[in-house]
Simulated assay, not measured.
Amino acid sequence: MTSLPWLEQNHLWFPPAEQALDDPDGLLALGGDLSTKRLILAYRSGIFPWFSDDQPILWWSPNPRCVLFPEEIHVSRSLRRTLNSGYFSITADQTFSRVIRLCANTRAEGTWITQDMIDSYGQLHKQGVAHSIEAWNPRGELVGGMYGLAIGRCFFGESMFSLETNASKVLMVHLANQLREWGYRIMDCQVESGHLIRMGARCIPRSEFLSILRTCVDSTPEHQHWDFQWQWPGREV
């Protein structure tokens, strides 16, 4: 780890993502800060922060990269029944701070979402870069959520939580369909999980991921205002 580049706070820079280590997979650099400018530069470059309170800031760009192309979202028969029931209501940007804190506090294995990260992503939300997606049950209780960054035609998912069965799956379907409708190219999932793969995500080489970013982070989506409710059924999936 000592041979990795150390980022200075007064120098807004990252080494190329291709220089990340193979073991641990994707570790690229240490240090720097969580300023909004640095975070935006990181995501535009295929890099994200992931660290614990007792560590310096660690920056990652794994290879391969887990992504979901919005048109490839998978809806199982049972999930379609849940969607058709209308049990969950899905909204966007209604309660960003609650979503990010629940993402931090509901993980049994602990969290990398430190207070500094909560503060920084909160600032990105105020700037219109970070967004939350919420799932509500019929009693009006927040039972699922996700947050991430929208840059160009790329959505970079950061974390999600689910307090009721299928809540996170339902919001992912709604989000993927809306991103497709708006002309987004990709949803970055960062690291593979069984849940994501079952939803249609797949792993692609980092080189392919970076090529997509170069094409899409500077292009403008069809729609940039996220403050509204989604209804189901919507587009055929």
Rank of each mutant, 00 (worst) to 15 (best):
E8K: 11
W226L: 02
P16D: 09
V143E: 05
E109L: 03
T106W: 02
D116Q: 05
N166T: 14
Q229S: 14
E134V: 02
W50I: 13
P5K: 03
R80N: 14
M172R: 04
G148F: 08
S97G: 08
F69I: 15
W182V: 10
C66Q: 05
T82A: 02
G110D: 01
F228L: 07
L102M: 13
D227C: 12
S78E: 09
D188G: 02
N177R: 11
S211I: 04
A201K: 06
R185G: 13
S85A: 00
S78T: 15
W230E: 00
H225T: 13
V217R: 07
H195R: 08
G183L: 00
V75M: 13
S162F: 10
W226E: 01
W60I: 02
F156G: 12
A17N: 04
Q9L: 10
L171I: 10
Q94I: 01
E158K: 13
F88I: 07
I100S: 01
R139G: 14
R81G: 14
N105P: 04
Q229L: 14
C216T: 11
I212K: 03
P221H: 08
S97W: 03
G128Y: 09
L58G: 09
H74G: 08
D33C: 00
D53A: 15
S207V: 12
N166L: 04
N84R: 13
C189I: 12
I151K: 08
Q127K: 05
G144E: 08
A29S: 01
G144Q: 05
S211N: 14
Q115E: 15
A29P: 01
C103W: 05
A104T: 11
K37S: 15
D218M: 03
H174F: 06
W59I: 02
P205K: 00
A135Y: 06
A29K: 00
S97T: 08
E222N: 10
L213M: 07
S89A: 13
K126P: 03
S193T: 14
F14V: 08
M199P: 11
S219F: 05
